[in-house]
């Protein structure tokens, strides 16, 4: 059976084009979607979390079925694009009854999502999400911390969350 030469060439070109597109999609394409907010606390604890020195862990009181948290934070954040990290201060003091997950959101886009921050822990530095540095330019942004609360036993997300308005300075 004689296959026309032009058809062989066309098939080879088509196969090469498919390989290029597949390689780009797998290795070079920036993910279009930001992460979804978990309904249950991440299994991983936040790796940058550290103990709060001298923290008084006398617990807050809450009615059965309710919750109580303490939040301590600074409203100034600095993002360094070169090392893909955000310098900040956020603490979940020992008096809290809930675990927390912290997100940094700029213009409805999540650029940071931590692992679980247990009561008695604080963070001073967190990693940007993969590819977030490509969507940021040098300058000052009005953004927010989104703080999600999770039951320490079941990991289930509370119906209450908190937004904390912050100023974010992005530098190279």
């Amino acid at each position: 059976m004689n296959i026309p030469k032009w058809l062989v060439i066309a098939l080879i070109v088509l196969i090469i084009a498919c390989l290029i597109i597949t390689s780009w999609a797998l290795f070079f394409r920036t993910p279009a979607n930001t992460p979804l907010t978990p309904d249950y606390a991440p299994v991983e604890k936040e790796e940058n979390a550290e103990n709060i020195e001298g923290d008084d862990d006398t617990k807050l009181e809450a009615d059965e079925g309710g919750g109580a948290v303490g939040l301590t934070f600074s409203d100034k954040i600095t993002i360094d694009l070169s090392d893909k990290k955000a310098a900040l201060y956020f603490a979940n003091p020992g008096k809290s009854l809930q675990d927390m997950v912290l997100q940094i959101v700029i213009q409805d886009e999540i650029i940071v999502q931590t692992g679980t921050i247990n009561p008695g822990k604080q963070v001073r530095q967190v990693d940007l999400l993969d590819g977030a540095e490509k969507r940021l330019a040098e300058g000052i942004y009005e953004g927010k911390f989104v703080v999600l609360y999770y039951d320490v036993e079941t990991g289930e997300r509370a119906m209450v969350s908190t937004d904390l308005l912050v100023t974010i300075t992005v530098q190279k």
């Binding site: 809450a62 079925g65 309710g66 919750g67 303490g70 939040l71 301590t72």
Partner: peptide, 14 residues
């Protein structure tokens, strides 16, 4: 420096 420290308590919301 501005230091924010806030307690938030909520009921069962049933």
């Amino acid at each position: 420096a501005d230091v924010y420290s806030v307690d938030i308590t909520w009921g069962a919301m049933e």
